[in-house]
């Protein structure tokens, strides 16, 4: 299934929640969606007979300046097609639905995104840091992140 077909299917089902399709070489074709609809759209993507995106390759968080972005790289092992799902959320209140219940692999990916970028996933059963220490402050992958000078009385070298 091509990206345009997937886009048409999704927009016929979810209407305005599906914001647009970016298909420009050399980038991978990506569908932009509204953050609050992430769970529902992903649910359709996974369970629809013609799409069957059963494999979440990667889940990344991005700092886009004003906003924070999530990028879901999906792949169907049965049908062999890929799609990129993108969503943006306000930096002030970065809360999005979790897809952990759809793909259990998202568990650690979402924890990592929360840890490094600071997007809070609602519905995740254990939203704690994963790579940084559990009591670390700040989200290192944000562009305005300042490395703390001290951590528990130890100098942080960078």
């Amino acid at each position: 299934m091509l990206a345009t077909e997937i886009f048409q299917r999704l927009s016929s089902e979810f209407g305005e929640k599906v914001l647009g399709l970016f298909d420009q070489q050399p980038s991978d074709p990506a569908i932009s969606i509204a953050p609050e609809a992430i769970f529902d759209i992903c649910h359709t993507l996974r369970d629809d007979e013609e799409m069957q995106f059963d494999y979440l390759m990667s889940l990344s968080g991005l700092d886009l300046g004003e906003k924070l972005g999530m990028v879901y790289h999906l792949c169907s092992m049965q049908l062999g097609h890929r799609i990129v799902i993108k969503a943006e959320v306000d930096k002030a209140n970065p809360i999005v639905p979790s897809v952990e219940r759809l793909w259990r692999t998202a568990d650690w990916h979402e924890r990592e995104t929360y840890d490094l970028v600071g997007i809070h996933f609602e519905g995740h059963h254990n939203m704690i840091r994963i790579l940084c220490p559990y009591d670390w402050e700040g989200h290192p992958l944000r562009k305005d992140y300042q490395v703390p000078e001290m951590y528990h009385g130890m100098k942080v070298t960078y």
């Binding site: 050399p26 990506a30 390759m57 990667s58």
Partner: peptide, 17 residues
Amino acid sequence: SEVYMRAENPKGEVGFY
């Protein structure tokens, strides 16, 4: 532009976004 490229590593799929 943005690209996610993956390859079959000995341990499994390694991808770079």
